[in-house]
Every structure is written in structure tokens, then in C-alpha cells.
């Protein structure tokens, strides 16, 4: 069955890029434009993995991860965060919040697909 990935990013171009790349790789993609929108979509749909930006207005990525993990439907779903910060402080903070993995921006399309496969399967 086709897997559904939710991409949460305040940048429409990043969402489009993620969406185009993952659709080409055979996934269904849902989009949300900030953490609050993401939480509504993540809890209102069956998603197989979530890609979220960290720095967003209206509920940032960390808040989203914590909120989603605290939600009954938010426990088995892998969450990958997109970040341009490669510093480990951010990584460990996001992991402590419940993130599954990360991808450092800018990323190549293959890298994106590889990471999604790694956490959500093909």
C-alpha cells in the first residue's frame, strides 16, 4: 500500500520540493504549513512518516514533535526533522522530544528519499 508522508514546513518551496521528490519515489504526500496545521493533519490522517522543519511560526518543530508524541495516534509514526543547523545540540533536543531522524538542509533529492525509506520503509 502506498505510504503517506506528511511534510510540515512554512516554506512553500520546500514543501513543493519534498512533495515532488517523494511523489516521484512512490509516496503520497500531505502538506502542512506550520506546526499547528501539521498537528491537525498528522492526527486527522493516517500518515506513515512526518518530515518537519524546526524553525516555524505558529508552533515550531520541537513543539510539534512533543505535542504529536503526546497524542494517542502520535507514537508509532517516525518523525524526521529538516534542519540547516548541523549542530548536535539541536539534534539531541529534537531526539529528546521524540524525533526519529533528521536530514540536514540543503539536501539532495536522493538523500531525502533515502532517509524516508530508512525510517518509513519503501
Amino acid at each position: 500500500m502506498t505510504k503517506t508522508i506528511l511534510t510540515i514546513d512554512d516554506s512553500a518551496s520546500v514543501r513543493q520540493m519534498v512533495s515532488m521528490t517523494l511523489t516521484a519515489a512512490g509516496y503520497d504526500v500531505l502538506q502542512a504549513e506550520d506546526g499547528a496545521d501539521g498537528l491537525a493533519k498528522a492526527t486527522g490522517n493516517r500518515v506513515d512518516a512526518i518530515l518537519t522543519d524546526l524553525n516555524m511560526p505558529n508552533m515550531n518543530g520541537l513543539e510539534f514533535i512533543r505535542a504529536f508524541r503526546a497524542h494517542p495516534s502520535g507514537q508509532g509514526v517516525p518523525i524526521v526533522f529538516l534542519t540547516t543547523e548541523s549542530d548536535d545540540g539541536m539534534k539531541s533536543e529534537a531526539k529528546a522530544a521524540g524525533a526519529t531522524g533528521w536530514i540536514v538542509k540543503p539536501f539532495k533529492q536522493e538523500q531525502l528519499v533515502a532517509v524516508v525509506k530508512k525510517v518509513a520503509g519503501a
Binding site: R69, Q75, V77, P78, I79, A99, T100, K118, V119, G121
Partner: peptide, 8 residues
Amino acid sequence: ANAGDPAL
């Protein structure tokens, strides 16, 4: 807890 999957 972080939705990691050993199988993958």
C-alpha cells in the same frame, strides 16, 4: 518511543 524501526 521515537518510532525507530529495527526492521528498517
